[in-house]
Design a protein around this nucleic acid. Sequence first.
DNA 1: GCCTTACATAGATAAGTTTCGATATATGCC
DNA 2: GGCATATATCGAAACTTATCTATGTAAGGC
Lengths: 121, 121
Amino acid sequence: MSLVMTNTQDQSESYVCNPNLQLRLGTVESEQFALAFKALSNPIRVQILDLISQGGGQICGCDIERHFDLTQPTISHHLKVLRDGGLITSEPRGVWVTHRINMGMLTTLQGLLMLVNNTKS
Amino acid sequence: MSLVMTNTQDQSESYVCNPNLQLRLGTVESEQFALAFKALSNPIRVQILDLISQGGGQICGCDIERHFDLTQPTISHHLKVLRDGGLITSEPRGVWVTHRINMGMLTTLQGLLMLVNNTKS
DNA sequence: GCCTTACATAGATAAGTTTCGATATATGCC
DNA sequence: GGCATATATCGAAACTTATCTATGTAAGGC
């Protein structure tokens, strides 16, 4: 890439270094990605997701609380953020609620990272 | 998984549904992941990353600003968040600053997603 | 040296996040 | 029905984030 202006025809309007860029992700799409990544934007939630992924697909809240120095409402909040971000699903099972990884969402996020990592040089 | 208590020896101390879970990610490690995901936790930044990935590895700020209805300082702030999260690098080139994807970080994030997506059923 | 352009920084404000203690809900056991 | 346990919700405090306007900095062209 050169940093010289490439679309000389349009010089009076605005400088453009690289006029070929297009937004490939729409507003709604990028908002959904952002919501999912927001769920992963906290170290506790990253660790919670790691625990859930080890639980044979399912673990209950008390299994999570043991590992952190946080109160039960705080863990409950983090689980809700993960749920709202689409990263896990939760299902009542009597007194407990079991949580499992939403593999489809994880695969979707991997797809986005691969898209932006596919840098042409 | 059964929700019946599995470590009956330890019943008086605390209920444990799934006693085999271990935190595989340390505090420092999960904080670094969280910082990188935080950089992706905003729809504008997801779109900026998409643009940068199309720029042949390098584009300048003016190429980004054109696509959004935001002021220059706001775009500058978002680029800094992406830089601090390790997702892009930025290099002065005369009057411009070029930005490029940090492929190593993207690969690392893909690795974490694969780890937690590798759910045993 | 001076002007223009690209980018960064500072300071303000409005909105969102994290965490807590207190309380509500709902399930299962006696 | 009454109690214990697991989880959710509420409301508040402290902190962080997104955005703006105004201003600073630094490079290149004349």
